[in-house]
Design a protein around this nucleic acid. Structure first.
Length: 849
RNA sequence: GCGGACGUGGCGAAAUGGUAGACGCAGCAGACUUAAAAUCUGCUAUCCGAAAUGGGUGUGCGGGUUCGAGUCCCGCCGUCCGCACCA
């Protein structure tokens, strides 16, 4: 007897699909389309087991939809620009381009054996000039439409690497690579006008019914809509009034001082004549803009000596302070402080000995502010002191609304909606990115490049031996005639943030070789992405940027109206984790061991070398430094792709993390082996007992129903459990050969989305017609799903005491009669009568005594 | 600080308000084998009991709604995640 040899089976069927062009996606208006997309990988060089899980889920959906008659688009590409390529070049002297394309080749080599139903002909990398050239064309269109602009902005600057760092790249105030103290620096940068769409981006979240609520909520918090009042304080010295924004205008009678940001124009103006102000501003700019840096930063203030008039009482003067905690790019960059009802303001006022005035009290306790600021929820009713809108007892929200109305009527303020969302700064002082296609001309200023000159390609002859941007110091690349006047001019040397590259690739997949960013007929047909799958780590940035891009592309005519929201459904999958085995050295530092170095016994781990017990940290994120990474290629070599695919889907629900265990992978392999053996056994069997056929067919159709439901609802682990259960039933069945054959072939069909190679092999072994990959999905026969008789549990006062077997269609009264006649019920009633009897047909009987 | 999710056997986990623990791992017993591995069969929440189509307990804790709660509501405790000087 032959054995299950995945390497042979998998190669054979991959070749067959390839030859037949089974997964090639062609536009076909006669068929409904389905676009499945997994977030494309960064070409690090190795496929990670997390990728395998992500693409397997997408592949299950793609194959399932194909068998349900959809014309499926399932593409793959690479998010190929970014810092790791430059870092590799700096570390080992190669070129980012070679490094990247080599990695892409390696990864494609590793992905092909997985048997994903991908249309490889559509593959591209974002570092292909054919791709980023079209991205430059989009940029020019956005520029013309006013969706991109240039402005000064404060950024994290690494003085050693000489580049801007993203907030995530600043650790404890130091550059993550150089270790240098990060400075705040003002630079002229390009920005996408995403804040213009804040309202729309937030409102439209409500319609994304097939997105996880968690992701929608995270985006909502990020966009951060708030409603408040904007008004101005007149200056006592007659200077320009100071405009402020507040969400708590109701606390105006508790104002203590007016604060402005160190970057506020007034602060700059004062600094010009007063060196002390300038020194203070510089002190504020030390340290990064990261959350940690801000969290630990002490509140600093500087009294300008200026005074402003309270809008409700011209005789009430408030001092103007410069304070380091006030952000220039939120609201107006100026506030009024109410220490009684804001902890941060209270801290500041205590430090600088400024007055604290209560504006409302707790209804019950009534006490004035003592240790902490009194900040009740806005819905809570409080007692107001001297409220100018005439309130005595009201909630904070009512007071806010009344105050805004009052201010608008009196003409000294206007209600305003503010967003937390800032414009997206896209300039990076990097080589390995998409060049920003503009030219700086001494006469004409900033001039967009002509579209016929695109792509503006990156030069190949660059060096990474010294820090800074190689484009900046390239001898000739910058030189170019001005597109407007033709005189010698200089190119922009900043490149685009790599998030730009991934913000529209989904649209490009619909026509990856088009001479324009998109092709009308293709985006009309293929958009939107019907199912998008990826990690929760992209919940905010990538998904928000893509939503912005889809709108911007729609405005500039590159996408149809329906693609304003590009992803109809989103699924965020969990990680693949693995236990860590470690011990501690005497100096407290951990020593990590590879899984091969330890032996597992009764839930404990021992070193093979000397039998010493080691600590187990379960379910940890895979990390090279912790020696707990599993390489999918090893798994494929050992067990085959189908086993790897089966395992990553089983055990845990897809949205949750799944722990990779050697035992689990082996169990998957054993199961596939069993199914394969069963397939052989059935073809070799003599005829069986046909009286068993109906029972088997009923189980089969239940399995069809359950697996279909599981796949439809992303319950892959539950679908797999059903497949195990049915395979167990089938292997024990004594039914006739035709019934067994029908069952194993249908089992193969049901397994095909998860283990396509084995399924295809079984299908052919039993004479299935054509490729299983093209076969229609089996339909459950409703009449076989219902049993003739059902077993009903009988509860007495909600506790299960007995069960009865009755015909499924028996009416309630009849069931009740039988139930009441059981020994358990008779005993419980003890001659008396039941208070109540509940009969749920086909479910349960509950007798209340 | 603000927002959210989750909490079920030794472990990963199932369960439209209707028999809690499907399925898998681990464990135990048996068959096959000279033996082991592989494979196959059976058992496996927990306590009492020799056993029982015996009984008690049981889905983090405390209450509530309901004939009936892992599931719904209220309050705690714990774990994880996101955001955070946002006026």
């Amino acid at each position: 007897m032959t054995t299950y040899t995945p390497s042979e089976i998998e190669a054979r069927w991959q070749t067959a699909w390839d030859k037949a062009g089974t997964f090639k996606a062609l536009r076909d208006p006669s068929k409904p389309k389905y676009y499945v997309l997994e977030m494309f990988p960064y070409p690090s060089g190795r496929i990670h087991i997390g990728h395998v899980r992500n693409y397997t889920m997408g592949d299950v959906i793609a194959r399932y939809k194909k068998s349900n008659g959809f014309n499926v688009l399932h593409p793959m590409g690479f998010d190929a620009f970014g810092m790791p390529a430059e870092n590799a070049a700096m570390a080992s002297g190669g070129h980012p381009k070679e490094w990247t394309y080599k990695n892409i080749d390696d990864m494609v080599e590793q992905m092909k054996p997985m048997g994903f139903s991908l249309d490889w002909e559509r593959m591209f990398a974002t570092c292909d000039p054919e791709y980023y050239g079209q991205q430059q064309a989009l940029f020019l269109d956005f520029l013309e439409a006013g969706l991109v602009y240039r402005k000064n902005a404060v950024v994290n600057w690494d003085p050693i690497d000489m580049t801007v760092l993203a907030n995530e790249q600043v650790i404890d105030g130091k550059g993550w690579r150089s270790g240098a103290e990060v400075e705040r620096r003002e630079l002229t940068q390009w920005f996408f006008k995403i804040s213009d769409m804040a309202e729309e981006l937030q409102d439209a979240l409500n319609d994304l019914d097939d997105w996880p609520a968690k992701v929608r909520l995270m985006q909502e918090n990020w966009i951060g809509r708030s409603r408040g009042l904007e008004f101005s304080f007149e200056r006592s010295d007659g200077g320009d009034p100071i405009s402020v924004y507040t969400t708590r205008p109701d606390t105006l009678m508790g104002a203590s001082f007016v604060g402005i940001s160190p970057d506020h124009p007034l602060a700059k103006e004062l600094a010009a004549t007063n060196p002390a102000v300038q020194t203070f501003r510089e002190d504020c700019n030390k340290g990064g803009t990261t959350a940690e840096a801000l969290d630990t930063a002490e509140k600093l203030g500087f009294d300008t000596g200026l005074k402003v008039k309270h809008p409700l009482d011209p005789n009430w003067e408030l001092p103007v302070w410069i304070a380091n905690f006030i952000l220039m790019d939120y609201g107006t960059g100026a506030i009024f402080a109410c220490p009684a009802h804001d902890q941060r303001d209270l801290d500041f006022c205590r430090k600088y000995d400024l007055p604290v005035v209560d504006t409302f009290f707790d209804l019950e306790n009534g006490a004035p502010v003592q240790k902490d600021a009194f900040v009740p929820p806005k819905e809570q009713k409080v007692r107001w002191v001297d409220h100018f809108a005439g309130l005595t007892e009201a909630t904070g929200q009512d007071a806010i609304d009344a105050t805004i109305t009052f201010a608008e009527n009196a003409g000294w303020g206007t209600g305003k909606t503010q967003f937390r969302l800032r414009d997206w700064g896209l300039s990076r002082q990097r080589y390995w990115g998409c060049p920003i296609p503009v030219v700086h001309c001494d006469d004409c200023g900033v001039v967009p490049e002509k579209k016929e000159n695109l792509p503006i390609k990156l030069p190949d002859d660059v060096s990474f031996d010294i820090p800074g941007n190689p484009l900046d110091r390239h001898p000739t690349w910058r030189d170019t005639p001005c597109p407007a006047c033709g005189k010698p001019a200089k190119r922009e040397t900043d490149t685009m943030d790599t998030f730009v590259d991934s913000s529209w690739y989904f649209a490009r997949f619909t026509a990856p070789r088009a001479e324009t960013p998109t092709e009308k007929a293709d985006v009309e047909y293929w958009m939107n992405v019907d199912q998008y799958i990826g990690g929760i780590e992209h919940a905010i940035l990538h998904l928000l940027y893509s939503r912005f891009f889809a709108r911007a592309m729609q405005i500039t005519g590159h996408l149809p109206e329906k693609a304003r929201e590009p992803f109809n459904a989103l699924f965020t999958q969990g990680m693949v984790t693995h236990a860590i085995y470690k011990t501690q050295r005497q100096d407290g530092r951990p020593v990590y061991y590879y899984p091969e170095e330890v032996e597992l016994r009764d839930g404990s781990a021992f070193l093979k070398e000397d039998g010493k017990e080691v600590d187990i940290v379960p379910s940890a994120k895979m990390s090279k430094s912790k020696n707990n990474v599993v390489d999918p290629m090893n798994i494929i070599e050992q067990f085959g792709a189908d086993t790897a695919r089966w395992f990553v889907l089983s055990d845990s629900p897809p949205e949750r993390d799944v722990e990779w265990t050697a035992a689990g992978a082996e169990a998957s392999y054993k199961f596939l082996n069993r199914v394969w053996t069963l397939c052989q056994r059935i073809s070799a069997m003599e005829d069986g007992d046909s009286s068993q056929d109906v029972a088997l067919r009923k189980e089969l159709h239940k399995a069809i129903h359950d697996v279909t439901m599981g796949v439809e609802s992303f319950g892959f682990n539950a679908a797999i459990a059903k497949l195990y259960a049915f395979a167990n039933i089938l292997s024990k069945s004594k039914a006739s050969k035709p019934a067994m054959r029908e069952a194993i072939m249908t089992l193969a069909q049901l397994m095909a989305p998860m283990t396509p190679h084995l399924a295809e092999d079984i299908w052919h072994h039993h004479g299935g017609e054509g490729l299983l990959a093209n076969a229609p999905w089996p339909k459950a026969d409703e009449s076989l799903l219902v049993d003739d008789t059902v077993t009903l549990p009988i509860q007495i006062n909600g506790k299960r005491r007995a069960e009865i077997e009755v015909p499924a269609d028996m009416d309630k009264a009849e069931v009740e009669k039988i139930a009441m006649a059981t020994d358990a019920v008779k005993k419980a009633l003890d001659g008396g009568s039941a208070k109540k009897v509940i009969v749920v047909p086909g479910r349960i009987v509950n007798v209340v005594v």
